[in-house]
Every structure is written in C-alpha cells, then in structure tokens.
Design a protein around this nucleic acid. Structure first.
Length: 542
RNA sequence: GGGCUCAUGGCCUAGUAUGGAUAAGGCACCGUCCUUCUAAGUCGGUGAUCGUGGGUCCAAAUCCCACUGAGCCCGCCA
C-alpha cells in the first residue's frame, strides 16, 4: 500500500458526501487542470453541481476549480505538490512511502528449459517477470522470484543422451551440449528407436536412480549457468531455483495423484483428468509423470510459503494455465491467489523464431551488438571519454535499451523484433531517459545544495512538478494490473516534462536557481525510483 | 474445424479494464534552435473515416454481434 498525500482521494471523498460518484468518475487530467470529475451522470444542472462542490471544498491545497461543459477541473497548488513529494523524500528517503504488506508474493519467470541459450523471444519473459517483481516489491509486498528448472522431461533427457552419444568423453561445454542436442533431434526423425531410449531413461529417472539424476542435473546445470550469466547482463538475478525432479523424488507428485484419485480416469495404464471435453493426462502408460502433474505439485509447494503467486508465461501456456488453475481450485486444497501473466510471442522480421532452423537472435548476440552500436555513438559524440567510461556507459545503455524496448510494449501484444529499433537511441528510448538524468546530474554537480519551495512556479515548472507528484498513481496501477509498461510510459512522460523545463528554465546563476535546484533533486530521486522498477540504469553522465 | 489473443497516420506504440472534452507519443520526411547548465535534446509542419459491416447509447478507438486478416493452443511434449 502506498502512503502519500493523495489530493485526488481527499477531493473524491469530500464530493462523495454530497453526490454519488464512483472512483472512475475522477481521473488525472492532462490538458484540463490536475484532476477532473465527469458529471454526466449526476442528475443536476452543471452550474449547481459546480457551486455545491466548490462550497464543499475549502482545502488550502486547491488552487482553483473550474466548470467546463460536463467536467469539473481541479487545479492543485504546485507548492503543495512539491511539499508533499519533498517531505516524503526528506522523511522516508522515498516518494511515495509504503506500508509493508504482510503477505508474501512469488513471481515465477523465465523457467525456460535448460536446453539452449536464452533468445529474444524468451527474454520477454525474464524482462517482464523481473520488472513485475521490482514493482510488486516496491509496492510493499515481500517478494521474491523463482525459476522452475525442468530437469525431468524428455527435452533434458535428450540433452543428456545427446552428450552421451556424441561427446561422451569431451568436456561438458555449452557448445558440445547444444551440438549433441540438435544431433539427437535430427536422428530421432530417422531412427524412432531413440524415443524408446529416452523413454527408458525417463522411467529410470522417475524410479530415483541417483547416478542418472545427478548426471542429468549436471548437464542441465551447464546450460542453466550460461542462462544465468546471460540474464545477469540485464541485471536480472533470480532469487531461487526449484528443480522439477524434487517433486518426483520427494513424493509430491504421487501425493497429487492420490489426492486427485477420485477424479482420475484411465486410458490403458495412463491416467487423465477430464476438464470440459478435454483429456488432460497426468501419467503416461509407463507410469512416469507429465509436466502438468509436476506443475500442480509445484504450485502446491509455492502456496505453502506464499500468499500471492504470479506466473509469467508465454501465450502458448494459456490452456495449460487454465487447466492448472481449474484443478488447483476445484479438486485440491489450495488457498493462494494466483495470477497468470501471459505475453505474446516475439517474431523476427524474417518470420517466426525457430531454434531448430537456426532462426533465433540470442540475448548474447543482441547485447553485444547493442554495446557495439553504443560504443560507436559515444566515440563520435564524446571523444573526450576514456575507455573505462565508454565501457560503463555502453553497458548501461545496452542493458537499459534492451529492457526498455521490450517492457514498454503491453505484454499481450505480439512483438516483432527489429534491429533498426533495438539500436535506435533517439526518441522513445532508454538513452532518451538516461540522457535527461545525466543533464540533471550535471547541473547539480556544478551547483550548491538548496531546499526552497516557492509559491510561484511558471508553467514549465508546474508541468514538471505535477509529473513528479503523480508517480504513485502509476506505480499503483502498474502493481494492480501487473503492467510494467505503465511505468515505462510514465517515465517517458516524466522525462518529457523535464526536458521542457530544462530548455526553458535557466538554473545556474539564475535568480530562481534555488527553487529549481530543489526540483532537480526531487526529479533525480523519482527518476531513480521509477527507472529501477523496469531496470533502466541511470548514470550521472552519458 | 473448435478455443484464446491481436488489428490505431508510411512504420512502431499509448489510449480499450472503468464509454465522455480537439485520438497522444516515437521513427521516417520537411523546416527551427548550440556566445546559457550534455543537440542521444528542443520547437513547428505534413500525415488517422481507430481492420470491415451492423448494433446498444445523449455519447463508441473503448461495450455487443458478424466478418476479414495475423499469432497461439487443441500431444501419454514442456
């Protein structure tokens, strides 16, 4: 829960005492004052409503109230808004302050099969997931992230078998493993016997063959470590890793099967559950478990320790999640709140991404190219910077750009990855945001420290002040709707307001310097806070 | 075939949850501003019957129906 001086709420509560309105009738306004109330539905003449509302509100933070057709617009004193933000930062070190929620949230993201490098399609999962985590955490939940490592399906067994067949006596390297993995899928097409082998290994695995389990985990770990390394480049570190096989070995999967036994039907020896007109299989003919069953066990496990579970999933998992949710809530003792956040697929300009056809852009590729492009531009624009500084800035720009370009688009929209856009550092981009922060820092470096709030701000200052004051509303809706893109959008508008201020309001040596320095300090603080939510790395100079 | 999702200037995106005041940004294109704090910036201009057709409503990009196009799912894979 957010704690701040919420003028919108104060006004709303007062009006509600005289008119029946709901929260949606009042919103933040962009062109007509600070907050606006729609009065279409109020059964009274606008002039009368206006008069009554004006009389009911004699708050000293209100600058003026205007009637405009079927809207009443409220103007808040800029000095009150600055004071609200400034006091909060002075007292709590942040704006808004939060009330720590006692419930615990778990965000599961990425969880991609450890059978290959992470590519720009998968990265949408990690970037959205990590941002949601940061937002929920900032909002006041005790949060952590988790990666569900698949070490018990056919894919990982194939990875292991590929290595045993083709690179047995060689080092366990990512390259060797990938080569073996691709080879085995190719051979499968000509030689169906391979599937038998995989099936047998699967049975052996589920019986709890220690040596086999350790070997498979060892191969999976090699790939997993490389995934971790790639994610770290984007400042993404996942709190905990949970191995799928644990749910088989420690009996959780069997427990699930027992608890569901009343609802299970059999097809040969395989067991399934009917949901609607669909048969959802939980075990195979040979008795081994399926992903669906293990995921049920996993969710029961999550619910033991967390009150709020958030799964970040590709849209191809929609049906899986629907069925999972149905079983959890109808057939099992399950009390946690679960949100499934789906994201649309990322395609390339050349078409669908495909690992087998080699048509992917890996995160490492993307990162390296973005760093290179950035270095090129820095050398051109800032010839005075030394190598170390160039390195710091280009890494910051690469990580911020990649994250920003992905996170700014609403998750449920499909996304086409384009190099021209990924490497564009102008306009609606991460460097645009970083640049404005660097400008603010640069001035502060050259100035003294002042804390002055005025009763008189010009339009440019007012616009910036409002953009800063309004931060909690966006933080709140991004948390409520699990939408990091709302923060990306907010940030862009905040920066626009700052750029306008920067260009029109001289600071150093100006008679109005002190109050403007104060705005600058607040701006930096809110920038740091909000940028961090979506992983943009701000630097004092770029 | 059934189900889910998406469709907004040449291109990309916001706005759709909660219907309401001139549909907002960016890229590209044309023009403006560096003897003031970082021009990766600023300001102005060109460009949209919000996929199509119906419906509901005082009011529809937003809600409902149908259609078209794209993506995803419909496995004893994950």
């Amino acid at each position: 829960m957010l704690l701040f001086n919420d003028y919108k709420k104060i006004i709303y509560e007062k009006i509600r005492k005289i008119y029946s309105i709901n929260e949606n009738d009042m919103e933040i306004s962009n062109n007509y004052g600070d907050f606006t109330l729609k009065i279409f539905k109020i059964n009274d003449k606008p002039e009368i409503i206006y008069k009554n509302i004006k009389n009911a509100l004699n708050e000293d933070f209100i600058d003026k109230i205007e009637l405009n057709n079927n809207y009443i617009n409220f103007f808040i004193k800029s000095s009150s808004m600055v004071k609200t933000v400034n006091d909060s930062i002075d007292t709590f070190g942040k704006y808004p302050n939060t009330f720590q929620d006692t419930s615990k949230a778990l965000i599961e993201h990425t969880s991609s099969n450890p059978t290959g490098p992470i590519h720009v399609g998968r990265i949408r999962n990690s970037i959205i997931g990590d941002s949601v985590f940061r937002i929920i955490d900032r909002y006041g939940y005790r949060s952590c992230t988790q990666y569900f490592v698949n070490d018990s399906g056919k894919q990982v067994i194939s990875l292991y078998l590929g290595h045993m067949k083709y690179h047995k006596d060689e080092d366990l390297t990512v390259e060797n493993l990938l080569e073996g993995y691709q080879k085995i899928y190719k051979e499968k097409e000509e030689n169906p016997e391979i599937n038998k082998e995989i099936e047998l290994l699967g049975e052996q695995y589920e019986r709890g063959d220690d040596e086999l389990i350790q070997n498979i985990q060892k191969t999976a770990s090699v790939i997993l470590d490389s995934i971790k390394k790639s994610l770290k480049k984007l400042d993404i570190e996942i709190s905990t890793y949970v191995w799928e096989s644990n749910f088989i070995l420690y009996g959780d999967v069997n427990k699930v099967l027992n608890e569901l036994s009343d609802y299970l039907k059999e097809d040969g020896k395989a067991k399934y559950i009917e949901i609607g007109d669909k048969k959802i299989f939980l075990t195979r003919d040979n008795g081994t478990s399926l992903y669906f069953t293990r995921d049920i066990a996993y969710h029961l496990f999550k619910a033991e320790n967390f009150d709020w579970i958030i799964d970040i999933l590709g849209e191809d998992h929609k049906d899986h999640a629907k069925h999972l949710d149905y079983v959890l809530n109808n057939y099992l003792d399950f009390n946690a709140k679960v949100n499934y956040l789906f994201y649309g697929f990322v395609s390339l300009e050349s078409g669908k991404m495909s690992t087998r056809k080699g048509r992917i852009v890996t995160l490492d590729d993307l990162y390296d190219k973005t760093v290179d492009e950035s270095i090129k531009i820095i050398k051109e624009k800032r010839p005075e910077y030394d190598e170390e500084k160039i390195k710091e800035i280009s890494n910051g720009i690469a990580l911020s750009s990649i994250r920003y370009n992905i996170v700014k688009v609403n998750a449920n929209k499909p996304l086409t990855f384009k190099w021209s856009e990924a490497l564009n550092f102008e306009g609606d981009s991460a460097p645009y945001i970083m640049y404005s922060y660097a400008r603010a820092s640069s001035i502060l470096n050259k100035s003294g420290d002042y804390n002055e709030i005025s009763d008189n701000y010009n339009d440019h200052e007012k616009k910036l002040i409002k953009a800063m004051y309004v931060y909690p509303y966006y933080l709140e809706s991004s948390a409520n709707y699990l939408r990091p893109d709302i923060i990306a959008n907010y940030l862009l508008n905040l920066v626009k307001a700052f750029n306008e201020f920067y260009l029109n309001c001289p600071i150093l040596g100006d008679p109005e310097m002190k109050k403007r320095i104060t705005l600058l300090k607040i701006y930096k603080k809110i920038m740091e806070d909000s940028s961090n939510l979506i992983g943009i790395k701000l630097l004092n100079s770029i």
